[in-house]
Design a protein around this nucleic acid. Structure first.
Lengths: 115, 115
DNA sequence: GTGATATATAACGATATTATTAAATGCTTC
DNA sequence: GAAGCATTTAATAATATCGTTATATATCAC
């Protein structure tokens, strides 16, 4: 019974609508990270990233676990799955081509450093 | 090469983040509709719906075709597919259970009329 | 052309989002 | 406990979003 509530979908899609947050998610795809490590590559204050992370956590896209004085961030598949369930109702899209996604991420990373 | 640009994903996810717009999309799943028919079930001005439709069109989630004095709205799979490609990079989610989606839509429709 | 219909745009207000800097919290180390 | 590191929260400003009503535009029917 995995029926996401409307409000939850609001949170999830709104969270995904920001390029900084999507970039954070793709970073976390590699590995779990501490907040300051997440923030490092961004030309943006740590406070801003901290708030982005809170948005992602509220949407259930990541989970944050405080251990000692550092807060670890890790992907939480639940959020993405909920969005995926909803979107799935609109049609079966091509099975994901991971190579395609790799290329996309690379292109995206290029655009990050260009700024 | 179906690599959505970051800005495009911004538009798509932001468009999906609004419950009114998601409801419009699920209505269009049934059939193509004129703008005023889309607006009918909403407790909201026609102007507001017109703008929601513009947002959906800008994101490539619907297409609008003017014929005479009425503007027809139909789903455009491109937008959803682009989002799906991006999300796919985060893991393979359950193959969509359409019955599950049906139940979700029904529950959602209930919540619409409850207001 | 007149008038009704279908839709879009403008102007505006309320609220939300995203960033900043400064201050607060909390853990670790000495 | 004092100092420092990791993170969050508060106050604030700029901009975006979402709704409203009023007005414009375009088409159809007579």
């Amino acid at each position: 019974m995995n029926t996401p509530s409307p409000d939850r979908l609001d949170l999830i899609f709104a969270a995904l609508a920001d390029p900084t947050r999507r970039r954070v998610l793709s970073m976390l795809l590699e590995d779990d990270m501490a907040v300051s490590d997440v923030a490092a590559p961004f030309a943006m204050s740590l406070a801003a990233i901290s708030k982005h992370l809170a948005v992602l956590a509220a949407a259930g896209l990541i989970r944050q676990e405080r251990r000692g004085r550092i807060t670890w961030c890790k992907l939480d598949p639940d959020g993405m799955r909920a969005a995926s369930v909803w979107m799935g109702g609109f049609g079966q899209f091509d099975p994901v081509d991971l190579d395609d996604f790799e290329r996309f991420l690379e292109a995206e990373m290029q655009s990050w450093t260009e700024e």
